[in-house]
């Protein structure tokens, strides 16, 4: 993967939802190619808004987002699809077609790479099948390729979600609360997978998390949001309890950490 790809730049970016909620306020932020960034903040702080602005799922009210120097188009169309092709997304609820096989789900990541008629009639080129299979290999579930997605455990389903994103051969991966529906053991496995993929392939990775200890453990750089505003931006190594207090606007509790002994630690 090209090491010079996957930079993101927000310039005076704001998002106000039709109901008046502020999702993002005058954000200026630069993310360099290959970074592993964890975004924290309480619910409603604008974590999802930030991620979804990068692939145009949410539109800006003002300001701009650029990916590798190109503005993210603010309307549906070819240009936006060309951008999305290079940005993989991983969701909290996995978003797999449960009645289809794992392979079919991963091939959805190849939709933007093949002629429309081939995808329509399920005539995937050998190369694309290979890319999909390699993506499954990278998350270690090749043996499940022909199993229906519905038969997998939560952790396995999220691995398929990651494989689908990898099949896009993306420059950027956006993970929106990827571990929020998983148990603690699986959570650590998935987080480790994301870090490993980021290191191996140099894909710029942005992960939304609400567990503070996870953010500190796996983040390289931490971005804190509060009411849509950037309130913290620094390396994970230096982040303090005080900083987290600023981000959340309150003392943190057992609910904010995955492993309870991390409180006050």
């Amino acid at each position: 993967m090209n090491k010079n790809q996957g930079s993101i730049r927000f310039t005076d970016a704001s998002v106000v939802y039709p109901n008046g909620t502020v999702g993002m306020k005058d954000l200026n932020l630069e993310i360099r190619p290959g970074e592993f960034v964890v975004i924290v903040g309480s619910s409603g702080a604008g974590k999802s808004t930030l991620l979804r602005a990068i692939n145009g799922l949410n539109r800006m009210t003002s300001g701009t987002v650029e990916v590798d120097g190109t503005k993210v188009p603010q309307k549906d169309g070819r240009e936006l699809r060309v951008l999305r092709k290079r940005v993989g997304m991983i969701f909290q609820d996995f978003r797999l077609v449960k009645r289809l096989t794992v392979m079919s789900n991963v091939l959805i990541g190849r939709l933007a790479h093949v002629p429309g008629w081939r995808a329509m009639f399920n005539l995937w080129p050998a190369h694309d099948r290979e890319v999909a299979m390699k993506a499954l290999e990278r998350v270690g579930i090749t043996e499940k390729a022909w199993v229906k997605a519905a038969q997998l455990s939560g952790g396995q389903q999220q691995r398929v979600g990651i494989a689908r994103a990898l099949a896009q051969e993306p420059a950027i991966i956006l993970a929106d609360e990827p571990v929020a529906s998983l148990d603690p053991v699986t959570t650590h496995q998935i987080m480790k997978d994301l870090v490993r993929i980021n290191r191996e392939l140099g894909i710029t990775t942005l992960v939304n998390l609400h567990f503070l200890d996870l953010a500190k453990q796996y983040g390289q750089r931490i971005i804190g949001l509060r009411f849509g505003e950037l309130v913290y931006d620094g390396s994970a190594a230096n982040v303090t309890d005080e900083d987290f207090r600023d981000i959340y606007g309150r003392d943190f509790t057992e609910d904010d950490v995955l492993d309870e002994d991390a409180v006050g630690g």
Binding site: K85, R95, V97, I108, L111, A112
Partner: peptide, 24 residues
């Protein structure tokens, strides 16, 4: 959610219907 995932992967409207909506 599924149709949105197809969109996020760069799929067209028709692909969103075929792969995200119709299976459901």
């Amino acid at each position: 959610g599924m149709p949105e995932a197809v969109r996020a992967a760069g799929g067209t409207w028709l692909q969103m219907i075929q792969f995200g909506a119709i299976p459901q």
